[in-house]
Amino acid sequence: MKLKWALLAVFFTITTVLTGCEPLLVLDPKGPQAERQANDIMLSIGIMSFIVIAVLAILTYMLIKYRASKQSEDYEPPHIEGNPIVEAICVGIPVIIVIFLSIVSVKSNYIVEATPQGYEDQEPLVIYASSSNWKWHFSYPEEDIETVNYLYIPTDRPLEFKLYSYGPITSFWIPQLGGQKYAMADMVTTLHLAAEVPGEYMGRNANFSGEGFAENAFNVKAVPPAEFDEWVEEVKETASPLTEEKFNELLEPGHLGQSTYTGTHLEFSPAPEHNHGSSEQDEHSTDEHHESGHSEHDDEHSQH
């Protein structure tokens, strides 16, 4: 009994806290992928609450009805083996729920791993997002520009992020546009997103990557396509070109503010290839870069 009330009290506190606040980021989607995920989350919360309530109800009933203080001294509980029908029900209902959720889950998998629904006929904007300790570099090969720690994106256009890392595994995450995906040093992963509402969103690395992890965030600004084109033009006119030397400087561990360049680092430091070992040449080009990075690192340490 006490347990039930304690739990109820907690649920109420939590719901009041919840309603008092802004909507939670993940449940306040601004794009089709995030919306699909938010819908899945709300659906599963609904079904799961039903299960929790059912278990709580059965437990409460048992505790009230069969507690020792309510029974006579000489009551001797019976010996009851399992009952096949009861157990079939206990297996059957969860199986049905799991099958239902599996269907939803599989469908959603194919949706979030493809160009967002309704955008299939549009050419996606490809952006290479690479992380280094503890920054994000965004290369727009089509527009031939690059930004650090901030992202400009057009609304109502599919976005295809090509993710990789110049260091530990990181995870590229913009909660209001869709779920995250890892960025790794030896392969490129692809994340399909789209924004439907103009606005500023929080983006960050969600996967622990060392000392500067907490501040490894970036700002996302979604603007209407016309405005996005204007921004690209402006960058091309005002920003300085990204040289290899400048880029290596940017890769040094630490935190940087936002900056903008013309040209992308893909020209002199291409993204790693997907396959491991089979295409030697492509791997070598990235390896070289890594090794040079490491030796600098080692030098630093021996000096200490």
């Binding site: 959720l101 889950s105 959603s108 995906k181």
Partner: peptide, 16 residues
């Protein structure tokens, strides 16, 4: 909540 996490598309939002 484990079942919720098991829904891989939604897990992209729960992970980490």
């Amino acid at each position: 909540t484990g079942v919720m996490l098991a829904m891989s598309a939604a897990d992209y939002q729960y992970h980490n």
